[in-house]
Design a protein around this nucleic acid. Structure first.
Length: 271
DNA sequence: AAAAGCCCCTGGATGC
DNA sequence: TGCATCCAGGGGCTTT
């Protein structure tokens, strides 16, 4: 479910409300991808100072440490008063003076990890190799192109790897490549400066539009209020195998790259 | 160093 | 209706 826009929309939906809250108790459900790395009771009486984001990770700054939250494939966060007893897929429940933060994650690819700070080895292992923030000031065209030049792998897989630029998941990778007119199979290192610049622009544009629209709602995303987005971002290629391209009418192709599906228009996207 | 595969897990859709 | 198979928005780890 969650690519960068969904994570950012989730963050925006509760960051201000949870800021300043005191943690009363933390209740864990089934094991997530990684252990919490601390006794849940050691979080009690700490305050939540702020909620930041790095790639697809949410960072909850506490008075004495930081919680790294990842939503994996199927995770979603809710924050509000009196959520009732945790369900079978609620695996992290944090009661605070401002409400309860709850992680629901059926597949349990998500995680909540405590670290002393961001230089803690625990945090560095998860955040250390992340690439540029596409919506941040450091997303530089030249640096982006340089990053791609070092990689012989297909551009789609380089985008997904997240070590050049973070936050571009399987849906937005296909959409951004369509927008830039580039085949997902194109070796990253073969992109000219012009085409790299087009892709840079497409990533920025696609992701920021999705954030503005309140999360992709390409499927069934809901934010921490539990509200589904009111808007609908139309996919140009993702999930549209066999259907006519909305620009040129050519049937959309679906291929597999690294065990993930990719979609592209053979007419609009040049090899 | 980089690339390719594997795997974690559950649930929904599809096919026989 | 029941059961098997395939697929899903991520990404760390191991092996080439």
């Amino acid at each position: 479910m969650p690519e960068l826009p969904e994570v950012e929309v989730t963050r925006l939906s509760f960051a201000n409300r949870i800021a300043g809250a005191r943690i009363a108790s933390v209740c864990m459900g089934k094991p997530l991808r990684w252990p919490l790395q601390c006794d849940p009771r050691s979080l009690e009486n700490q305050s939540v100072l702020a909620v930041r984001r790095r790639g697809k990770y949410l960072l909850l700054d506490l008075s004495d440490g930081v919680l790294l939250i990842h939503l994996g494939m199927s995770g979603s966060l809710t924050f509000g008063p009196q959520p009732g007893v945790p369900g079978p897929h609620d695996h992290f429940d944090m009661q605070t003076s401002h409400g309860t933060l709850r992680l629901n994650d059926p597949r349990r690819f998500g995680a909540v990890v405590f670290a002393r700070n961001e230089s803690d080895p625990v945090a560095r292992k998860l955040l250390g190799k992340l690439g540029m923030e596409p919506l941040g000031p450091d997303f530089d065209v030249k640096q982006f192109h340089n990053g791609l030049k070092r990689r012989k792998a297909a551009i789609k897989q380089v985008l997904l790897a997240g070590d050049v630029v973070v936050g571009v998941g399987n849906i937005y990778a296909s959409e951004a490549l369509f927008s830039a007119g580039i085949r997902p199979t194109k070796p990253a290192c073969q992109l000219s400066a012009l085409r790299a610049a087009r892709l840079h622009h497409a990533i920025l544009e696609v992701l920021s539009r999705a954030v503005a629209a309140g999360g992709s709602t390409l499927r069934d995303f809901s934010d921490a209020h539990g509200d589904a987005g009111h808007f609908q971002i139309q996919a140009m290629v993702y999930g549209r195998a066999g259907q006519p391209c909305k620009v040129c009418g050519t049937p959309i192709h679906a291929i597999r790259q690294g065990q993930r599906s990719s979609f592209f228009c053979p007419g609009c996207q040049k090899p």
